[in-house]
Simulated assay, not measured.
Amino acid sequence: MELVAGEENAYGYRKLAICLRRRYNLVINNKKVYRLCKELDILAPQRRINVKHPRRLAVNRKITASDQLWEVDIKYGYITEEDRFFYLMCLIDVYDRMVVDYHLGLSCEGKHAAQVLQRALWKRNLFETDCRPVIRSDNGPQFISHAFEEACEKFSVEHERIPPKTPNKNAHIESFHALLEAECLSRHEFVSYQEAYQLVGEYIRFYNERRIHGSLYDFAPCEFRQRLAAGQLKPFIVKV
C-alpha cells in the first residue's frame, strides 16, 4: 500500500512484485502479489487491446453455386537434391472443385495469400459484381496476417477461420491436397525448384481440365462449370 501511495502508483502487480523483492528482500512471486492486490482492490486497470480484424468462426453453410465459398490452405513439398521445402498455397471453389488460383514458391507469407485472392477474384470476374465469395482458412500465420486481412477488407470479402484441430471444416482443400500428394508429390523426387514448379503446375492444370471428379457427375472441374452454365447438368447443394 505504501508503494501504491508513493511514486509507484502507476505500477501493475508485476512491477510491484519486483519492488517488494528488491526493496524489502521479500520472497514473493507475481501470483501472490496479484492475489494481494486483488484483495486490497488496488489492481491497475488492464489495457484493452483493440483487435483490428476480429476473428470470424466458420459456420455451417449450404452452397448452391460457384463463387459462394472458397477454401484456402498450404501444402509443403520437398526438393530432394536441394534438401529444402517449397510451399503450395491453393484457393479452391467448394462447389465446382476448381483450383481458382495458387502460389508456389520457396516462401509463403500473408502478401502471397493477398495476391492469390486478388488474382482469383479477377479470374472469376468478381470485381465487376457485388457478389463475393466467403474465404475459409485455418489459423495459419499467412491467413491471420495484416496483409491478408486488409486485402479481404479491401476486396469486400468475408474471411472466416475454422477452429483449431478441425480440418474437416476445410475438407475440400484437404481432399485436393491428398490427391496432389498421391498423384504428384509422392511420384517424383524433385531435383530442383524449377522441376517442382513445372510438374506441380502441370498437375494442377490436369486436375482442373481433365481429371474426372466423382462428385461432379464424373467431369473435370472446367467441363463441369461449362456444362452447368449451359443447363446440361442438374444443380446440387454442398453442405459444409
Rank of each mutant, 00 (worst) to 15 (best):
Q68R: 06
K62D: 09
K38C: 07
A44Q: 12
A44E: 07
V27K: 11
P45F: 04
N60T: 14
N29G: 15
E82T: 03
D41N: 15
R61A: 11
V27A: 12
N50D: 13
Q46P: 05
W70A: 00
V59L: 13
V59E: 15
K62G: 00
V59F: 14
G77R: 00
A65Y: 04
V72F: 01
R21C: 07
Y76R: 09
E81N: 10
R35L: 07
V27H: 07
L40W: 12
S66Y: 00
N60H: 15
E39Q: 15
H53R: 08
R48H: 09
Q46V: 11
L69T: 01
I63G: 06
L26E: 07
T80I: 02
R61F: 03
E39V: 13
N25M: 07
K31L: 08
H53A: 09
I63P: 01
G77E: 02
Y24Q: 14
I74L: 12
Y76I: 10
L40H: 09
R21W: 03
D83A: 14
K31N: 12
F85C: 06
P45R: 11
R35A: 10
R22H: 13
L40M: 12
L36S: 07
A44W: 03
L40K: 10
K75I: 03
R48G: 04
E71T: 05
K75L: 03
V27G: 03
L69I: 14
D83S: 09
G77Y: 02
F86N: 00
I79A: 06
R56N: 13
Y78Q: 03
S66T: 10
I49H: 12
I28Y: 04
N60Y: 15
R61Y: 08
E39N: 15
H53F: 15
S66A: 15
L36V: 11
C37T: 07
I74C: 12
K52H: 10
A65N: 08
I49G: 08
E82S: 03
D83F: 08
I49Y: 14
D41C: 11
H53C: 03
T80A: 13
I28Q: 05
V59I: 13
Y24T: 07
L36Q: 09
Q46N: 12
N60P: 08
K31Q: 09
K52M: 09
N30V: 05
F86T: 01
R35P: 04
R61K: 13
L40P: 00
F85Q: 06
I74M: 08
K38L: 06
P54S: 08
E39F: 12
R22V: 10
I42E: 06
A65D: 14
V27I: 09
N29F: 01
R21Q: 15
R22M: 10
F85G: 00
